[in-house]
Write a protein that binds this DNA or RNA. Structure first.
Length: 111
DNA sequence: AGTATGACATAGC
DNA sequence: AGCTATGCCATAC
């Protein structure tokens, strides 16, 4: 990784299907806990190799149109991967927010 | 080298 | 509860 952006891309690529992550969390994993903005900037320049659709803001929704098709495709893409949406039109961070590698186990309630 | 901007986040009003 | 203002890190000019 010559640039931190490369690290950011790596983190985003590490997001498993059916899960989403937030800029702040990706930034933290990339090494910049307060660089959520830097993440957004990097993702803006991110290659298609990076599933930026799995990256959302703290509200669970992307800006408006990181895709040529618009937010419409964004929603379908995540739903297609198994991510559910709330009535707010945002991804259900309460259930699909990826907290990092190894955070998938344990999962639900119960032990 | 400094200023300006950005797909965010947090605090204050 | 909603809006405004500032902070943060990185890139662009």
């Amino acid at each position: 990784m010559e640039k931190l952006s490369e690290t950011i891309y790596a983190v985003v690529r590490a997001i498993p299907p059916g899960r989403v992550s937030t800029y702040g969390r990706v930034a933290a994993m990339a090494g910049i806990p307060r660089g959520a903005r830097a993440v957004g900037y990097a993702l803006n320049r991110a290659p298609r190799d990076v599933p930026c659709q799995r990256v959302v803001n703290r509200l669970g929704g992307l800006s408006d149109a990181f895709l040529p098709t618009g937010r419409e495709t964004h929603r379908l893409l995540l739903e297609m991967e198994g991510v559910g949406f709330t009535a707010d039109g945002a991804v259900d961070l309460a259930r699909f927010l990826w907290a990092g590698p190894g955070a998938e186990r344990g999962g639900g309630e119960g032990t």
